[in-house]
């Protein structure tokens, strides 16, 4: 499928484990094909390991700017934000994918930027959902997490991405089973279900079965 046009700012939220960092990395690489000045911003203040910074050499190779706390993946155990995070709102020529951290606590950092993002009004705020995560297993609990993120981040969602997965053990059947859930989340939140995302190895099994299916390459692999 062809992806929708990107807005200047794409915010990706979701409970940790939704796979939003992987979606963010793939979106940044796709966005770079369309535009010259692209950045991926890691606003995660929660996760100590497995950050978008893990892909930093790939960003460098592709000419994507990484806006990320200099302490990410280090022993400096403080919830630090990147010093250049204001480039996201101040540099209007820059197209940005924002990887918003974890849950409502992670989204707290977004509150600082949200008024300017809303004022400029050239953004999409997308919720990445995964029904195989324990705290978002049904539509109701997912909506609850969405409301908490909106409240903490001072900004409202505009769309849903269904990235339901069980890590590298995900089967096409697992993805098919998640569609009903994803549609229910979309219905209850009154938001469009923009994509269902899957890793490229199972994309061919599903591409004629699921609408708006998007293949992703997997960035971080476990030990």
């Amino acid at each position: 499928m062809i992806m929708r046009d990107f807005k200047r700012i794409t915010l990706l939220c979701g409970h940790y484990g939704s796979g939003k960092t992987n979606v963010a990395v793939n979106f940044a690489l796709e966005l770079r094909k369309q535009r010259d000045r692209v950045a991926i911003a890691d606003l995660d203040i929660v996760n100590p390991y497995f950050r978008s910074k893990d892909s930093s050499s790939e960003f460098e190779d592709n000419g994507i700017r990484l806006i990320c706390s200099e302490f990410a993946n280090s022993n400096v155990d403080i919830p630090a934000l990147p010093q250049d995070m204001y480039a996201i709102t101040d540099d209007k020529e820059l197209s940005v994918i924002i990887d918003v951290g974890g849950d409502d606590r992670g989204a707290l950092a977004l509150g600082r930027l949200a008024p300017k993002i809303v004022e400029e009004n050239d953004y999409e705020m997308l919720m990445v959902i995964n029904c195989y995560r324990p705290l978002t297993r049904d539509a109701e609990s997912t909506i609850e997490v969405m409301r908490e993120i909106e409240y903490a981040g001072h900004i409202k969602f505009t769309g849903i991405i269904n990235n339901s997965n069980l890590g590298i053990a995900t089967t096409p059947q697992d993805v098919l089973k998640s569609i009903k859930y994803a549609k229910e989340v979309a219905k209850l939140s009154d938001l469009p279900l923009l994509y269902t995302t899957v890793t490229d190895d199972i994309y061919n099994d599903l591409c004629d079965k699921i609408e708006n299916l998007l293949p992703l390459s997997l960035q971080a692999r476990p030990v």
Binding site: Y16, G17, N130, C131, Y132, R133, P134, R137, D138, N165, L166, G167, A169, D174, K177, Y181
Partner: peptide, 12 residues
């Protein structure tokens, strides 16, 4: 809804 869930070790 699913038999298996995806979890962090700490959550498990």
């Amino acid at each position: 809804m699913a038999d298996k869930v995806l979890m962090k070790g700490n959550e498990a």
